[in-house]
Amino acid sequence: MIGELFEHFSYLVTVFLMVTGLYIVIARGNLIKKLVGLSIFQTSVYLLYIAPGKLLGGTAPILAPQYGIYSNPLPHVLILTAIVVGVATLALGLALAVRIREAYGTIEEDEITALDNARQDMERDPDR
């Protein structure tokens, strides 16, 4: 049982990070904390791709007689792209959080929703 756990250690870490990140996104109301969760969630995917690409004792795929086992370099390249995407998303999310703070004066989701609802009620019934 324990041995099996360690055999799949990288997957366990991946799943743990994935679920942690997703939980933070859903459970936290603070816009910055949500973004932190989102980043953890995205980072877990990097691990999901890269860990299986590595073979123990494998080298870079260089065609030479002394090397027999190669690690797959393609996941690294893919994840390089995904990292760029993740950074861009985080940057944009933070920029939006700054703008939201300027416009609403808060970065708590429930307060923003309350302000929005009040505004909507006013539009529906301007006399109130």
């Binding site: 994935m18 997703l22 996104v25 816009l31 949500k34 989102l38 969630f41 995205q42 995917v45 999901l48 995904a82 998303t89 944009l92 999310g93 939006l96 959080a97 703008r99 939201i100 416009a103 609403y104 923003i112 929005d116 505004r119």
Partner: peptide
Amino acid sequence: DRRALAASYRYLIMGTIGATFFVI
């Protein structure tokens, strides 16, 4: 409208979760 910012943020969160699910 300032609600555009909140809408955009919400879409960013949900859209990124969607895209990350896709890439998983």
